[in-house]
Design a protein around this nucleic acid. Structure first.
Length: 261
DNA sequence: ATGCCTTGTCGCACAAGA
């Protein structure tokens, strides 16, 4: 079973690109972030015509997450627990029945947090703390679990072509990296790191200053696995070539193959 | 040092992204 994550930067502007990639990679589950659409505006019909079920947590203009799945989506949760006043659509979770039992998948869009030192950065750290709390709860279920998404965290210097240029950025702040380590240290496996341990596995290239042409990328889109999912991990990879397509997102799909029986 | 692009918005410039 192929499970992917992709910050698509506007699903309506990117629908043809999405359909092309779905046909090429043929993923079983896709976690989308930054759909920039309300739930009613999501192009569900085109995606359902390709054989996918759709669960959406939308928001006007910004943010928004979704899960696409060839099998039925069950127990859908919209919104990250821990702050009822948080209106930003950055989390959706569902379970999927598979031959070996169940797989739980979440589509995560952690806040960017720039500029450092503002309420935006505080919101990022608070959101990360809520995610850690929820992840601890989910790990208690002892299920195959995939926490997939745009974490807006560069975990290590090898995850950037030019780490020195990110030292003042929210994505590479010690506090943000520490929050990501706390999450990992609950017992999660970074699937891409496990399969591609060396440098250069980037998932984002800025639109500006020819970042793609210079391969000036960073790795901020991650697939984190519970022990029960990690036991079933077969491979993980980045579809970097998608960044070279017409009208690309600045992020590319990251995917893994899971043996679910 | 700054902006470099891109999307979406009660557009006609601006916020937000990273």
């Amino acid at each position: 079973m192929i499970i992917a994550t992709w910050n698509i930067n506007g699903v309506k502007a990117r629908i043809e690109t999405l359909l092309t990639w779905l046909g090429e990679r043929r993923p079983d589950i896709v976690c989308l972030q930054e759909i920039k659409s309300v739930t009613e505006g999501f192009p569900a019909a085109e995606i359902e015509a390709r054989g996918y079920n759709v669960a959406v947590h939308g928001q006007k203009g910004f943010n928004g997450v979704a899960i696409l799945c060839k099998r039925p989506l069950e127990d859908v949760r919209r919104g990250l627990p821990g702050d009822e006043a948080d209106a930003q659509a950055r989390y959706i979770e569902a379970t999927v029945s598979v031959p070996s039992g169940v797989v739980r998948v979440a589509s995560i869009y952690q806040p960017n947090g720039n500029p450092v030192g503002t309420d935006k950065f505080a919101y990022k750290l608070a959101w990360a703390a809520r995610l850690e709390t929820h992840a601890r709860s989910l790990l208690g279920l002892e299920e195959p679990l995939v926490l997939a998404g745009d974490y807006n965290v560069i975990p290590e210097p090898i995850d950037a072509k030019s780490p020195e240029s990110w030292t003042d950025d929210a994505l590479f702040q010690p506090e943000a990296r520490a929050s990501y380590r706390r999450l990992i240290n609950l017992g999660l496996t970074d699937a891409l790191r496990a399969c591609v341990p060396g440098p250069g596995a980037y998932t984002f290239w800025d639109y500006q200053a020819g970042a793609w042409q210079k391969n000036n990328g960073i790795r901020i889109d991650h697939l984190l696995l519970s022990p029960q999912a990690a036991d079933r991990l077969e491979r993980a990879a980045v579809d970097a070539h998608v960044r070279g397509w017409e009208k690309p997102s600045d992020h590319v799909p990251v995917w893994l193959a899971l043996d679910v029986g």
